[in-house]
Amino acid sequence: MTMRHTTHGACHAQMQLLRRLAPRSILKALLIASCISAATPAAAQNDKVLARVNGVDITSADVAFATGMYANRLGDMPEDARLSAVVDELIGLRLAADAAKAANVTNDEAYKRQMAFFEAQTLRSVFVAREVAKRVDEEAVRKAYDDQIGRMPSAQESRLRHMLLSTEAEARDVIAELDAGKDFATLAGERSKDEASKASGGDLGYLTPGQTMAEIEAAAVGLEPGQYTREPVASAFGFHIVKLEDRRTRPAPSFEALSGQIRDSLEAAATQSIMADLRAAATVEKLVPDVAPPAADDGHDHGAE
């Protein structure tokens, strides 16, 4: 049982690496087949047997392992159909692997080249992952977050409500109702012509300069929290009444919100550094010209600019 657990764990780790590094599905198939080959009937006794090919069990653990590799192909398939499809795939892999071994495919140069390439891929992935882990830990991510937040300029935000009326006379009538004590949000829901905000009582949320119409922004400058404009504010859309709910300094994004992105960035930089160090320390002869790949198409015609 220990051997089964160890073998399956090693295969799982290899598959996680392969998802990021292997460029062809055939390499994935080779590893899945090799992992299934390692699961003998005796070693699989703690797993539910879902199929059997030439006396070799395909178990629920094998299926769970392979399902992650086939996730893109399986899509939103119902669970029972997903199970059936993965089992069929593993049966096919087992049959092909057995036939390949019987035909001495393991002695073919094509097989050896693919396995050597796959081994190099896996060695690189394991080595780089180990070295990156030494450089990028929680403390490094936290420090990068603190540095990033420290460089982030502070921004003032205003939380505004507004109402849009068709005429100046209508706007003055609403102002009179507000002066009489009517609730701004209630009146906005009843009277505002702005369909986008009336359902929320005219609430525009917290805005930084430049995020709303210049007329509304200018009208809010002279207000204190809780105040509304005492004169209609004209724009191309009609006449507005603006209320300032609150002013604040925009809060910094939380560590939880940014930590994943920061970690990815640090790991990418660490990977580049590790590979650059390896290359600098080695004797490398590249016998073809260095040619930069074409720039990715971003949808803009830069030549016309």
Rank of each mutant, 00 (worst) to 15 (best):
V233W: 04
V233A: 04
A234C: 05
A234E: 15
A234K: 14
A234M: 10
S235K: 07
S235F: 09
S235I: 05
A236Q: 14
F237M: 13
F237K: 15
G238L: 06
F239S: 02
F239W: 15
H240A: 09
H240M: 11
H240D: 12
H240K: 09
I241S: 00
V242P: 04
V242S: 08
K243S: 12
L244N: 02
D246T: 07
D246S: 12
R247K: 15
R248P: 08
R248D: 11
T249Y: 06
T249L: 13
T249P: 05
R250W: 10
R250T: 13
R250E: 14
P251F: 10
P251D: 10
A252P: 04
A252I: 03
P253T: 11
S254R: 03
E256W: 05
S259H: 09
G260N: 10
G260C: 07
G260F: 06
G260M: 08
Q261W: 03
Q261S: 12
I262F: 05
I262P: 03
R263K: 14
D264P: 01
S265G: 13
S265N: 13
E267Q: 11
E267Y: 01
E267L: 01
A268I: 02
A268D: 06
A269F: 00
A270V: 00
Q272F: 06
Q272G: 13
S273W: 00
S273F: 00
S273V: 00
I274D: 00
I274Q: 01
A276Y: 04
D277C: 04
D277R: 08
L278Y: 06
L278W: 08
R279G: 05
R279W: 03
A281C: 05
T283H: 11
T283I: 12
V284E: 06
E285A: 14
K286C: 05
K286T: 12
K286L: 13
V288C: 03
V288T: 14
V288P: 02
V288Q: 12
V288R: 10
P289R: 11
D290H: 13
D290I: 07
A292M: 12
A292Y: 09
P293N: 07
